[in-house]
């Protein structure tokens, strides 16, 4: 028979079947995409509501001292070493990577300016916040997630204590106050690490190195870095606490909350860094149209 294929079907029948299969595949893909969009919008809505509820408690009532202090200790004191190490090695690595190029131009004494500027404006805040998103953000999400699945958050509410006020607000304050301070520690250790490597290991003249470092890094640069870290701190606290509060059941749910908290914090830090970088650069250009001079 003309147009027949080996399994006994005519070619139009085969083509119709093939088209139906493609149509079904596309319909499934569109359905999956729709479900993904709905989930993303729901998640975003839930996060915005969570932020609004936290904001309301932040404005109206300070948390008790006994809930603030343990969080300040956990987030601030216990992160000092890891943040200091991050800053130190970052400073050293910039020195290692930049030295050869600056040496070729006979500008190695300007290395300090580059290291310090990069650290104070960009790498110090971003790397400290990333490190803290891993150390503090994941821990907060896991802790609150465990409290959620063992009904401790429900117990707080049942005892007439608002869980947002008791659990989220102290963590928010601790992150917003201490992450900028830890950023300053990372900056300081990075500057020390860079100077140590440049002066003692690469043999750059310390007088010119320090002179150039002082000349090109201004208080505005420091302000840029620290102001970014306020936003990073707020983002880490809100994202991690939201993930913990909306943790899925079981050990898997807690693990997923901790991992997703870190990933979401990391992506948000990078996004905020770009947005704040553009805004702060605009402010800088408006204030000093000539701009800084390094080389």
């Amino acid at each position: 028979m003309a147009g027949s294929v080996p399994n006994g079907l005519t070619r139009p029948e085969v083509e119709a079947g093939w088209l139906a299969a493609v149509g079904l595949y596309l319909a499934n893909q569109i359905t999956a995409l729709g479900a993904l969009v709905v989930r993303a919008v729901t998640e975003l809505g839930s996060f915005v509501l969570f932020c609004l509820r936290t904001g309301r408690w932040l404005m109206f009532r300070l948390p008790p001292w006994e809930t603030l202090m343990p969080n300040f200790y956990q987030i601030g004191v216990r992160s000092l070493l890891v943040v200091g190490l991050t800053g130190t090695f970052t400073g050293m690595v910039i020195a290692v990577q930049s030295y050869a190029q600056f040496r070729m131009l006979n500008l190695e004494t300007r290395l300090g300016a580059v290291i310090n500027l990069a650290l104070v404006r960009e790498l110090g805040p971003v790397l400290a916040a990333t490190m803290l998103a891993g150390r503090v953000g994941s821990a907060m999400a896991a802790q609150l997630g465990t409290m959620r699945i063992t009904e401790q958050i429900d117990a707080l509410a049942a005892l007439g204590t608002n869980p947002i006020h008791y659990l989220v607000v102290p963590r928010f304050w601790a992150c917003v106050v201490l992450i900028p301070m830890l950023t300053l520690v990372a900056d300081f250790m990075g500057i020390l690490g860079g100077a140590f490597y440049s002066i003692y290991l690469l043999g750059i003249d310390y007088h010119h190195y320090l002179q150039n470092s002082r000349e090109f890094v201004t208080l505005f640069d420091l302000w840029v870095g620290v102001s970014k870290s306020f936003f990073f701190g707020a983002a880490i606290a809100l994202i991690a606490c939201h993930r913990g509060f909306h943790c899925g059941p079981g050990a898997e749910g807690v693990g997923r909350a901790a991992t997703s908290a870190f990933v979401a914090c990391f992506v948000t830090i990078l996004l905020l860094d770009l947005v704040l970088g553009i805004i702060l650069k605009g402010i800088e250009v408006a204030l000093w149209p000539e701009g800084p001079r390094i080389l």
Binding site: T150, E151, Q152, D154, A155, L156, A157, A158, L159, G160
Partner: peptide, 14 residues
């Protein structure tokens, strides 16, 4: 909620 006491299944102690 302060007028209501709730005893949880797994106690939910902090």
């Amino acid at each position: 909620r302060r007028r209501i006491g709730f005893v949880f299944q797994q106690a939910a102690l902090f």
